[in-house]
């Protein structure tokens, strides 16, 4: 299951916010490895630092200590264009992550222009098709779309430059339950079709268990233990905190397991 060399590795990652005299350490000495083609989850309650890790890895926040590596090479604090082509992010809130004044086609052609891709029109049509939106959505403004449709556009925007890593920041938590399942199944299908590597952040165990093979349980800025999807479903945990967390959402996981099966 574990490949020999990880694609992404975090070594002793620490992130602090606030002024010098009152530093608040949000992420404390976190290390994890994600193999190529793997889906790794970070679970934890709100404020435990999981999204902060994702923002640091994506390059939105360059102020961290420790190292993040891609293909065994340490990433510079200020990411280069090549990194952005390989790793793309999907945000939590589909209502905030699309430019309100740009039609879908413009949203999708922007990354193509930045990275100098050819065949814009064909690529846009193909990617829209891949995320389950027909050509009729091509010239729509975001405010004409539903939450699920917007999230599909956001996923299309991330995928159009053919990255191999997708960073998912609670991609379904802002959607209602029926749409959540659709988006999760879409993400699952896309990963297999395109051989993508996922790093997914969520507080929802059912979502993590559905998408990821392994997950790190986070508490107060640390990864306290790593679990496989099977362990999450069977509620097998070493730490008391994890067991409590699993217990609290066990019904949801059970329900999801039925849906998947």
């Amino acid at each position: 299951m574990k490949p020999s060399r990880p694609l992404i590795e975090a070594i002793g990652l620490s992130i602090s916010f606030g002024p010098q005299h009152a530093r608040n350490r949000v992420v404390d000495d976190v290390s994890f490895r994600i193999g190529k083609g793997e889906a790794y989850g970070l679970i934890g309650e709100s404020g435990c630092g999981k999204s902060t890790i994702l923002r640091a890895l994506s390059g939105l926040n360059g102020e961290y200590e420790g190292a993040l590596t891609l293909n065994d090479r340490e990433l510079p604090k200020k990411r280069d264009k090549e990194f952005f082509r390989r790793a793309q992010m999907v945000f939590q809130d589909p209502f905030g992550s699309l430019h309100p004044r740009k039609i879908v086609e413009k949203v999708l052609s922007e990354p193509l222009k930045i990275h100098g891709f050819d065949r814009h029109s064909e690529r846009i049509a193909e990617t829209l098709d891949a995320v389950g939106l027909g050509p009729s959505f091509r010239y729509r403004y975001p405010h004409e779309l539903s939450g699920g449709q917007r999230q599909r556009v956001a996923i299309a925007r991330a995928l159009i430059i053919e990255p191999d890593i997708l960073l998912l920041d609670e991609p379904t938590s802002a959607l209602d339950v029926s749409v959540q399942a659709e988006i999760l199944n879409l993400l699952k299908r896309l990963r297999i079709e395109r051989n993508l590597t996922y790093l997914m952040v969520s507080h929802d165990l059912a979502v993590i268990a559905h998408i990821c093979e392994r997950a790190g349980m986070m508490h107060r800025g640390r990864i306290i233990e790593e679990l496989t999807a099977g362990q999450i479903r069977k509620s097998e945990a070493r730490e008391d905190y994890t067991r409590e967390f699993l217990q609290a959402s066990v019904e949801a996981v059970a329900r999801d397991a039925e849906v998947v099966a």
Binding site: G59, H99, E110, I114
Partner: peptide, 8 residues
């Protein structure tokens, strides 16, 4: 943030 992450 999304366009920044696209390398714009």
């Amino acid at each position: 943030a999304a366009v920044r992450l696209q390398g714009a």
